[in-house]
């Protein structure tokens, strides 16, 4: 049971997935109200964040687009200098420029010691910016992974034609007609040697990304 809820929320910033704040308040008023709960005011840091995310403080919340609503939530969560940040799909609705600014800001915050928990279906941004990843399915943690492992990723090798490759470094993922997909672990030199022996008609080699890892975990119904 959580007994220190107020204390925890005092240093935790939260960005919801679907931002539904008080529709009749202006952006400026909303941010002031949010800061007041943390005994803060509309200070220089708040002003910097509003400038960074190009917020129009005079607009009413119900006049904003989805992306601008998200930006209001991001500024509210960051403005009081939290120690922990929880962001639920923070980039949904944001244009690429704002996404880039958000992640630059989050990277700076993390460098200053802020712990950031990011929930996202965009695995590209997770792979690019996060240190660790937790896969959750139906409310249960499926697995956790250190993304440093993905900096030297395994290879996904797609082969057409040629002989079948049987080697301990190769794991056959898919076999359809003359097209075979393998996961390869090992030295690149051995990979090239084995491919040469198999003499395929065509070959494609790619780094394994979180997408493939995710599909491997979720897509094949192997989770019991």
């Amino acid at each position: 049971m959580v007994t220190e809820s107020r204390v925890i929320k005092g240093f935790t910033g939260y960005v919801p997935s679907d931002v539904r704040y008080y529709r009749n308040l202006t952006v400026g008023r909303l941010i002031k109200v949010s800061n007041r709960f943390h005994r803060g005011s509309f200070d220089d840091e708040t002003e910097r964040l509003c400038d960074l995310f190009e917020l129009d403080l005079t607009k009413r919340f119900d006049e904003l687009s989805t992306g601008n609503k998200k930006k209001v939530a991001i500024v509210c969560a960051l403005a009081f200098k939290p120690k922990v940040l929880i962001l639920d799909e923070p980039t949904s609705g944001l244009d690429p420029v704002m996404q880039k600014r958000l992640f630059t800001e989050l990277t700076n915050q993390a460098a200053n010691g802020v712990a950031i928990l990011l929930s996202s279906h965009n695995l590209g941004e997770v792979q690019e910016y996060c240190d660790r990843v937790v896969f959750i399915k139906q409310g249960r943690i499926v697995t956790t992974a250190d993304l440093a492992e993905f900096s030297q990723p395994q290879k996904i090798v797609m082969v057409r034609g040629g002989k079948e490759i049987c080697h301990s470094n190769f794991q056959l993922l898919e076999n359809r007609r003359d097209k075979r997909i393998y996961r390869y672990r090992g030295e690149p030199g051995i990979l090239l040697e084995l491919l040469k022996q198999a003499a395929p008609d065509d070959v494609t080699i790619a780094n394994e990304s979180l997408d493939e890892y995710f599909m491997d975990l979720y897509g094949q119904g192997e989770l019991k």
Binding site: S5, R6, K9, P16, D18, Y21, Y22, S34, F37
Partner: peptide, 14 residues
């Protein structure tokens, strides 16, 4: 119903 409680519940108030 309006979803605004999510802001209040994320603030340090009981």
């Amino acid at each position: 119903t309006d979803g605004t409680i999510e802001l209040l519940y994320s603030k340090p108030v009981s």
